[in-house]
């Protein structure tokens, strides 16, 4: 920036006319530590790469099977199970959160007990439990629905119940935090207008809770996608299972695990990008300036690189 030229009335200070100070010429501090650590890291990396190149790995098997129909079916099933379990988790979690906050001691303790059990036991154990309950219940009878247990508890049902019911316990805590983040004055204003408890919750409280609920829910989705790999244990045909099947017939065990890992990476990366934009959307109204998207960052950097010339 140059000094404004117009400020010349009266006796001027020394700063008004003095030339810009000479640029400092100093010898920068040498960061020897950085060089050393870079060398060490590179060396380690090279060792890992070397080790894998020496291993008896048939890398071409990965692209060969990458779009194999059974792999694609596994991907579809994994995605479908992720979505279905999350929907069950979110809906049931919201109900549990409302129950947990209710003034009725019975409903709130039931919700508490549910969360206590499903958060307190490993999801792996829960999956096995659902799958094997048929050993003690030959039939299922819900009054309106009656069937043999084995017909009802398909691998998909066992996977869905195992993952979804477990997720509900975590989601209920997230939704509860969201509901509690809404100012009490909002509920009062709604009640003062004659709105019932249910209307107040649906129209006033839950929409505002979303801002707090959405970001951690995005994390839950990504976690869920990875957790679905556990359903191999209930015989559900997911991505990991598809990879393992090919591994058994072709003998390329490690290669197929690589392949599956790459697929998971692709899926979680896509979800992370989606989460970024979703969070940005829900930050509206709470922050004046939204964080820039990666594309905006790139553009800003390009502009700031050019700016010095533009300014002159």
């Amino acid at each position: 920036m140059t000094n404004p030229v117009d400020k010349t009335e009266g006796p001027t200070g020394p700063s008004a006319t003095s030339p810009p100070p000479a640029a400092i010429k100093a010898i920068p501090v040498r960061h020897y530590g950085r060089w050393v650590s870079a060398v060490v890291v590179f060396a380690l990396l090279a060792m890992v790469v070397y080790a894998f190149s020496q291993g008896d790995i048939n890398y071409t098997a990965i692209p060969d099977y990458f779009f194999d129909p059974s792999i694609l079916e596994g991907v579809r099933n994994t995605l479908w199970l992720t979505v279905a379990s999350m929907v069950l988790g979110v809906v049931l979690g919201a109900i549990l959160a409302v129950m947990r906050l209710s003034k009725n001691p019975v409903t709130s303790s039931v919700a508490w007990g549910y969360i206590w059990f499903f958060r307190g036991t490993p999801v792996y154990v829960q999956l096995l439990l659902w799958f094997n309950l048929g050993l003690v219940f030959p039939y299922i009878n819900l009054g309106f629905y009656r069937d043999e247990w084995a017909d009802f508890m398909t691998p998909f049902m066992a996977a869905l119940l195992g993952l979804g019911l477990n997720e509900a316990a975590y989601m209920s805590e997230i939704v509860r935090a969201g509901i509690q983040s809404v100012d009490e004055g909002q509920t009062e204003a709604a009640h003062a207008l004659g709105m019932s408890h249910g209307k107040t919750l649906r129209r006033v409280v839950l929409p505002q809770a979303m801002r707090v609920v959405v970001p951690p829910t995005g994390n839950e989705v990504i976690n869920m996608l990875k957790t679905t790999s556990l359903v191999v244990v209930v015989q559900y045909f997911d991505l990991l299972r598809a990879g393992q099947n090919i591994a058994q017939t072709s003998g390329a065990t490690v290669e197929m695990l690589f392949l599956v890992a790459v697929w998971y990476l692709i899926l979680t990366t896509v979800l992370s990008i989606g989460q970024f934009y979703l969070e940005r959307r829900y930050a509206r109204g709470s922050t004046r300036n939204l964080p820039p998207t990666p594309w905006q960052k790139v553009r800003a950097n390009l502009i700031s690189l050019r700016r010095p010339e533009v300014a002159k």
């Binding site: 204003a189 003062a192 207008l193 004659g194 019932s196």
Partner: peptide, 18 residues
């Protein structure tokens, strides 16, 4: 709730739905 319909209330901190 029905009783409250006939009574309007204005709060110190507005409490509009944001």
């Amino acid at each position: 709730a029905a009783q409250r319909r006939d009574i309007g209330m204005v709060f110190q901190r507005f409490n509009l739905f944001p």
